[in-house]
Write a protein that binds this DNA or RNA. Structure first.
Lengths: 327, 327
DNA sequence: CGCCACTATGACAACGTTGTCCGCGAATGG
DNA sequence: CCATTCGCGGACAACGTTGTCATAGTGGCG
């Protein structure tokens, strides 16, 4: 800005006036300044501007589990979209389900003075955010609730979803319904297990513990678990899978086998309708999740100081065939 | 920091020394300062720090087409990963194939003084970046080259890929091979068309213009185009699709029809192996693309000032069945 | 006992910008 | 023709940090 001022033969303040469209600059002077800006390729330093004005940095921090997961990338897109409408940029970071990494990212974002934080929690302890929240940084938790702080939260109806999945299978005659879920310390995994259990009881199927497989999963362990289940004297005739990744692993393990069990998967995914049989899923809307969380965050930024809210988004069962196989 | 200093009864500079682990602070003093920091929930302002130190902002700007596209979210993840290793945060923005939006995002990132830019170009004009590049901001273009500036670029072997796709189909007896691509002003779409053409000539099939459908595509228009092609007196017996989205639309349009043409799709995608028939694709590695671009960018940040490089990543045909259908 | 070396701390400027206030010259009215 | 006002431009401080340098205090040694 100094260089621009020198080149245009004006004071630095006049340059500032020009770049900020402030009144009180002679058109000819403004012209000279603009020419100088152009010639030097000047671009004002937003950090310095925000520092001086005490205004916001115009950024939102978004800590999620993994951008590469289609579900979260859908959420990211929605967050980006709503932030754009509100003139903010989004900084993202993947925690990979590691609480330390989540914390590191969130605090790094705070040091950058983001206007707000969206967090898909990896851990259960969020006390580290209390100073930030007290200092006025709004925080909204997505997909999973915070461990030990009271804050805005947007969830999906995990329990309702798996209850419905079990009911759907039971209605088609299944009595041996297995559940393959993620590690039980993950909130959503645990909730979905609860829904499964409740669904089993409500549908009169009865909860059978030997049909539940929880744990961190890769393709190999899912295949092994499935193999074990199918070796039972009375093998399950239907499966409920706890998230999109597990569903895909299961599909891969089942490919080419005979007597395939019925299947309902949590999370919708592309091409589910084109598989044979098409996969019945508990669908929920990634972009709705992102939008709801963003709306909540921006409401806080607009000064909404009502008590923290908890929003639970509905899920819906999309019957496509794999869940309608008769037992 | 002022408040912390007051509370700890020291000067602001001493606080600075403590938070920066500078030597020369009495342990007892440091203790008092840390206690004050804790009590006040102080977190140093990174913007101010960077401003004063003249150091980098520790951020990388990444302009892509759409984070929600699995291909780009894979790239994003790789970019994030390599940035993390180098202590940088990533700011992303989706251009939605709109050159104005691309420019807006890139310049916004520059105003934020990102250390470097990764851009999946939407437009063909990048002169607007010249001042930034001259000012020392390294820029790497991904997936598509820049329109009118010389800069580091990472591409995939689009031509080689479609040449191979056509050869594969021709080897299985196909003589009427159609190509469904994206709008021809998109670099990759055009390259892939060129590869298709070259493949047709080289394989002795001959280039037949009536079998080419280019244009911005949605599900409906793809279905219509396909319907038209299949109504020909001599309909194509095989298809090459220009990207993952088009492939999916084609699959959906073909679902349930008889006499399905053979198919090779550009871009690999999840579950391609589980469809029936499994889909043969030209695969290339999203994370390799992100990593290569990131490596190039960080090399520049490390002071590499060699002439701009153009890296072309290999693709490989993954035969899964849909391309091996005999004509 | 005096001086020096060294340690711990602080005062001050500066990063790039903008808000406040002041001054200068011209225009306008009496 | 002079006084008042208004339009335009500039000097200066401040945002929250950190680098530079100065200074006060302490202990050791001659």
């Amino acid at each position: 800005m100094n260089d621009v001022a020198r080149l245009a033969g004006v004071s630095i303040k006049t340059v500032s006036r020009v770049v900020n469209d402030e009144p009180g600059v002679h058109p000819a002077t403004a012209e000279r300044v603009l020419a100088a800006i152009d010639q030097l390729g000047f671009r004002r330093n937003l950090s310095a501007r925000n520092l001086r004005r005490g205004s916001s940095t115009g950024t939102i921090g978004f800590v999620l589990e993994d951008v590469a997961n289609p579900f979260y990338s859908g959420v990211t897109r929605a967050v980006e979209e709503i932030s754009r409408l509100r003139g903010r940029q989004v900084i993202t970071g993947s925690s990979d389900e590691d609480p330390a990494r989540e914390r590191e990212l969130a605090l790094e974002f705070c040091s950058r003075r983001v206007d707000g934080l969206l967090i898909v929690p990896a851990g259960l302890q969020h006390g580290y955010l209390v100073p930030e929240m007290r200092a006025g940084t709004p925080v909204v938790f997505l997909d999973r609730p915070a461990g030990d702080v009271v804050a805005d939260t947007v969830l999906v109806d995990n329990i309702g979803g798996t209850v419905e999945a079990v009911a759907h299978l039971a209605a088609h005659g299944h009595r041996r319904i297995a559940f393959l879920g993620d590690a039980p310390d993950i909130f959503t995994a645990n909730e979905r297990l609860r829904g499964y259990r409740e669904g089993c009881v409500r549908s009169g199927v009865g909860y059978q513990e030997d049909l539940v497989v929880m744990g961190p999963h890769d393709e190999r362990s899912i295949a092994a678990a499935l193999h074990r289940l199918r070796g039972f004297r009375e093998p399950p005739t239907a499966l409920v899978t706890g998230n999109n990744r597990i569903t895909v692993y299961v599909l891969r393990a089942l490919a080419g086998t005979v007597d395939r069990p019925a299947l309902v998967g949590f999370d919708d995914f592309e091409l589910a309708d084109l598989l044979s049989p098409p996969v019945t899923v508990i669908a929920h809307d990634a972009s709705a999740l992102g939008k709801a969380a963003g709306d909540l965050l921006f409401a806080r930024l607009d000064g909404d100081s009502s008590p923290p809210r908890r929003v639970v988004l509905p899920v819906r069962l999309v019957p496509r065939g794999s869940g309608e196989v008769r037992a």
